[in-house]
Design a protein around this nucleic acid. Structure first.
Lengths: 239, 239
DNA sequence: TAGATTGTTAATCGATTAACAATC
DNA sequence: TAGATTGTTAATCGATTAACAATC
């Protein structure tokens, strides 16, 4: 493994303080990072020591060129003639994705979706600590879901002041979403993972990073493709 | 409204049998359609009769050019000097997205996420009928969730033969996903909305459309951005 | 008609792929 | 060393934006 230590010491686009530079990387590349992370995690579990961009490209159904190009945005993670050390590369991408950053998350809205998300291993598996849930329903407040307390929404600010969560998962009805988002922003939240069906854009708080998720949009593109494929079949039948 | 009837009769890229052509439209455009649909639905609820690409562009934070370019892939839905008729355009996009196609969906896996999805209004709101759930847990089989029966997974094939669902929402554990997907493909499903954490690619059944959803990936890009913004703050502090 | 706004072409920008020199 | 495979530059492709003629 000594060659990897050498690589790590020699290459890599780093800031003065040694961390990896992320600033100027294109969104397209960033969106692909979690997928690399997943595949490398799988290889790691299978005890693979090394992988070449060409073998990985076959597994992931992307070009080897893209893999090399993407990884190189963050530094030279591989080695000519050898490929990539799976453990090392997985670790580097983990680092990029903040797996070791110790982020904490709260879930606002303890309905079906809130429960489903908080009950999954999604957070812990990615190094994110689940801290608490919040809801307005008196029947839920004070109860426990998946080992976490459900607090009253009024307690949001005091909780944030004490526990400084980084991420808020928003699963409230869309009517409440904007108000809650502003309260979260004021309370110093750093990112909002928004599943409420209201698209959020907090112009007043540009420092808060928002991911608007619309599961319905994804269902609709699936429907589009189903209906379109039916149509093209019908058309080729007619020919 | 007569001008719109005229537009509808005069323009539009249509096949011989009159339906809208979808075949050659770029994926980037298709992914944006559901968002147009949402914003137009909102305008419709607010009783707006017409909208120009430039006003819509301000609402949606995209360029007016992109809106016109996108909509024109499917035909001339607007009118020079007037803009777009909200109801007409919303209807056209609904049609494109298959809202009126009468698709039916089953949910395989009645865990937290399966329940959450099936309990939302997501399907009916988009013209998709929820038909049933399937699970292997004897405690769930025979019960009802959100007004739908939970069947044993063994009944999948017989149910599909009878009710011909178009879409299967897959929320099984990842170990089961591939086998279930193949069974669904054999049973004639047309699309799989895959939330299991296994990426599906059914090479043997290219006619089956698969949408692999990885919520964890989206969480990770949020983490990436949070950690990166912290880093760039730190760096500018140092200067 | 005059003003507005689309539809559409051309120009720009960004992302992907190909190719190959560097190098392990 | 020879073979393999990266890192990186150049070429291609696709998507976005700008501009304006067509036209309602």
């Amino acid at each position: 493994m000594e060659h990897i230590d050498k690589v790590a010491g020699t290459f890599g686009k780093r800031g003065e303080s040694g961390e990896l530079l992320r600033g100027s990387v294109s969104p397209a590349v960033i969106r692909r990072l979690p997928r690399y992370h997943r595949y490398l995690g799988e290889l790691l579990r299978n005890n693979r020591l090394r992988i070449s961009s060409s073998e990985l490209s076959k597994m992931m159904k992307v070009t080897a060129s893209q893999i090399r190009q993407d990884l190189n945005c963050f530094g030279g993670f591989g080695q000519q003639g050898y490929g990539y050390n799976v453990k090392y590369l997985h670790g580097k991408i983990s680092e990029l994705l903040g797996v070791s950053a110790g982020l904490g998350a709260i879930v606002v809205g303890a309905g079906n979706l809130g429960r489903a998300l908080v009950s999954s291993h999604m957070f812990e598996r990615r190094g994110v600590t689940r801290l608490a849930l919040f809801d307005v329903d008196p029947a839920l407040i004070g109860s426990e879901i998946s080992g976490l307390s459900v607090y009253a929404l009024e307690q949001l600010e005091s909780f944030c002041e004490q526990s400084r969560p980084d991420i808020a998962v928003l699963t409230t009805p869309k009517e409440a979403a904007y108000e809650v988002a502003v309260r979260l922003a004021k309370a110093g939240i750093r990112g909002i993972w928004n599943f409420s069906n209201m698209e959020l854009h907090l112009e007043e708080y540009p420092e808060v990073i928002i991911q608007n998720i619309h599961l319905g949009d994804s269902l609709m593109t699936l429907c589009y493709e189903i209906v379109s494929s039916a149509e093209s079949n019908r058309q080729s039948d007619e020919e």
